[in-house]
């Protein structure tokens, strides 16, 4: 009897252990994914860097991987990416922050329940459609005001800006909602208006959450691919800072767009040009990874403060 009991028990604990292992394996898939991404990128990037020195890659100012004379300077792509990121940030950061203030401080429960899903739609529209909308509707509209080239950084920045608004607003709003009501009540008690409370109490108190949302949104803009590929074009161009307006009216090529172009281009699988795809990919991965991590670190600060 006791032997049977024991067998039953050990079978149960055995099963419990197996179940645990199966679930752990599922969780491990995420680690494996990260490892696989790193290995895939590194394997080819290392080959690339054995042919092209990292100094030439990171400081070079010409990106002509397939045209003679071949040059693998990634700076035009990096600056192209920065132009789009900067442009979209100009749109998304203030709008997203103000949106978060409205949702957290002013909006009624009903308004919130309608506006929040509506805002989520902005992030849910496929980016290829954003690119198309920019190319076919926004660019001609801009062109009617200021002459721009068919592919330009401005209309790409506008759509990227729109699509990252929810990223800023939802995370910032979470942070603002986490600000204890005591703080607000104390200010009201001093006779402060809602404006004062919002800008001088809530925003500073939620600052780390807001900053975290900004970083995350910028990271998303850096990694955005299809909208910029379609709308901003394929002109790897070192940004001319002496002409900031002109920068936005002309075509630029981002790192992501260069990757799409190389991925579907006339380069052979063993060539250095093809390997450069992975070097750019690794650079992009590293930048976004660090930014995501930074965002996570900043965010964890506000969680600690108000826990």
């Amino acid at each position: 009897m006791s032997g049977l009991e024991l067998g039953h028990d050990s079978a149960r604990s055995m099963r419990g252990r197996v179940v645990r292992v199966v679930f752990a394996v599922c969780a491990a898939v995420s680690i494996l994914t990260t490892a696989a991404i790193l290995l895939t990128l590194l394997a080819d990037a290392v080959e690339f860097f054995s042919a092209v020195s990292p100094i030439e890659f990171f400081t070079g100012t010409r990106w002509t991987p397939t045209n003679e004379p071949v040059s693998f300077g990634v700076l035009p792509l990096v600056t192209g990416t920065l132009v789009i990121t900067f442009g979209s940030a100009l749109i998304a950061l203030p709008i997203g922050l103000l949106t978060a203030i409205y949702l957290s401080e002013y909006a009624s429960g009903r308004a919130r329940s309608i506006l929040k899903p509506a805002l989520e739609v902005l992030a849910g529209v496929p980016t290829v459609i954003y690119g198309y909308l920019a190319l076919v509707y926004i660019t001609p509209a801009i062109d009617a005001l200021v002459p721009v080239s068919t592919f330009n950084a401005l209309s790409a920045s506008i759509v990227v800006g729109i699509m990252i608004i929810p990223m800023v607003s939802s995370i910032s709003e979470d942070a603002m909602s986490a600000v204890p009501d005591d703080l607000r009540q104390a200010s009201y008690g001093l006779g402060a208006t809602k404006f004062t409370v919002s800008t001088s109490v809530v925003v500073p108190a939620a600052l780390s959450g807001i900053v975290s949302s900004f970083i995350l949104a910028l990271s998303r803009a850096i990694g955005e691919t299809m909208a910029v590929t379609i709308a901003a074009g394929q002109t790897p161009r070192l940004v001319d800072l002496t002409d900031p307006a002109g920068v936005f009216l002309e075509s630029v090529q981002t790192m992501t767009a260069a990757m799409v172009q190389l991925g579907a281009s006339d380069v052979t699988g063993q060539s250095i040009a093809y390997k450069s795809l992975f070097a750019v990919g690794l650079t992009l991965f590293a930048i976004t990874f660090v930014m995501n991590l930074l965002s996570e670190l900043v965010a964890s600060r506000y969680r600690e403060v108000y826990r």
Binding site: I37, L41, G223, L284, F285, N292
Partner: peptide
């Protein structure tokens, strides 16, 4: 593992494309 998952959610989709290509 948790931080890693949050981070993976932020990796650009084109990088996943390279992963698919390589793997």
């Amino acid at each position: 593992v948790r931080i890693n998952i949050a981070n993976l959610a932020g990796v650009p989709s084109v990088v996943y494309g390279l992963l698919g290509l390589g793997l």
